[in-house]
């Protein structure tokens, strides 16, 4: 754990250094750029709350990917599952009229189901026809994207809008802001705590992790590997779906064209840098959210295009992941040397 934190911090710092080099080569001032980045994401009231709200889909899709990768299934379908979850919440929000107390949970349920439906489809294809979920979930992403685009262009199109989008959902389903922070953050934190409990304290989480590390061992140990596979797919799909639902209920309150496109691969990216740990996913989710939020301010203050952050994020992923492997090798070598010394004495 301490090793991981060390390699993570070193990696992020190294990535920032590489980013600074890129900036300097382009003729920008790295110090001013990073200053603006931090200023607009963490050290201003509105920036900080915006960072927290933005972290909701990032952390939830990150948790989805983390749990899936840690448990075996290569679920790369978070983008599609997010879209289907958002669609579920939108449908309920548009057509069901109930007071908030009932409508909010119902919308959330719909988003969970929407995501689980889409990952469940991939799980079904795997179980019934042995089709690799790795490619299936990827293809389902594209299909979900076009399907949602069709839904908001034709059946649910808002005639008063110029680009494809639905009408706003019933105001009873809107998640209010509390002190500048959207309440969707509470749901996200709750989901993260539940995930942590399941994965590190629950029996099913233990079974899933064992299956992820060695499925044969888990099978011999008495885990129902196939049933667990389906469960993991459903749970991770539901998490990504929840991200979509919360985005609708807390943000634009309607399904807008291109929703989730910016978050498409971020969840997977976060899971990868966090090496599938729950707390790591949470922290890296906050970091990436701060970067993306700060990018807007950075573009305002300095001339650096906000797309620079996309590059920086990918550099962070590469450096942290590679750094972890190399650092582990260094640590192992040190440990060996120490043991050798003890033995020769």
């Amino acid at each position: 754990m301490r090793k991981q934190a060390l390699s993570g911090i070193l990696g992020v710092l190294a990535a920032f250094a590489i980013g600074a080099l890129v900036l300097a080569l382009q003729g920008f001032n790295p110090v001013a750029t990073y200053g603006a980045l931090l200023q607009y994401s963490l050290f201003s009231g509105s920036g900080f709350t915006a960072t927290l709200t933005r972290a909701v889909p990032l952390i939830l899709t990150g948790l989805s990917a983390s749990i899936a990768f840690a448990s075996g299934p290569v679920n790369l379908g978070q983008p599609g599952q997010l879209v289907m979850g958002a669609l579920g919440a939108t449908l309920v929000g548009l057509f069901v009229h109930l007071p908030s107390v009932f409508l909010v949970p119902l919308c959330i349920l719909a988003s969970l189901l929407g995501g689980a439906l889409w990952s469940g489809l991939a799980a079904l294809l795997k179980r019934a026809f042995a089709m690799d979920e790795f490619i299936v979930t990827l293809m389902l992403n594209f299909i979900a994207d076009y399907f949602a685009l069709w839904v908001i262009t034709y059946p649910l199109f808002d005639p008063s809008a110029s680009t494809p989008m639905t009408r706003p959902i019933s105001t009873a389903a809107w998640l209010p802001d509390l002190g500048g922070v959207n309440t969707s953050v509470l749901f996200m934190v709750l989901a993260a705590v539940v995930c942590w409990l399941i994965m590190s304290r629950g029996r099913s989480g233990y079974e899933w992790r064992m299956t992820g590390q060695n499925s044969l061992f888990a099978r011999i140990g008495g885990c129902k590997v196939d049933a667990n596979y389906v469960r993991v797919m459903l749970v991770t799909g539901a998490l990504a779906g929840l991200a979509g639902g919360l985005m609708i209920m807390g943000g634009p309150h309607r399904f807008v064209k291109g929703l989730g496109a910016n978050y498409a691969w971020d969840g997977i990216m976060i899971a990868v840098v966090a090496s599938n740990g729950i707390s790591g996913t949470f922290l890296y989710g906050l970091l990436f959210s701060a970067l993306q939020q700060g990018a807007i301010g950075m573009e305002l203050v300095t001339a650096v295009p906000s797309e620079f952050i996309d590059v920086l994020q990918a550099v962070i992923v590469l450096v942290v992941v590679a750094g972890r492997v190399s650092l582990n090798m260094v640590f192992d070598r040190l440990a060996t040397r120490r043991k050798l010394k003890e033995n020769t004495r």
Binding site: V272, I309, D310, L312, A314, V315, V317, L318
Partner: peptide, 15 residues
């Protein structure tokens, strides 16, 4: 590495 590289490609080209 592949995933990171794909993300890098998207980020780099848009940037």
């Amino acid at each position: 590495t592949g995933i990171a590289l794909n993300l890098f490609a998207v980020g780099l080209t848009t940037f």
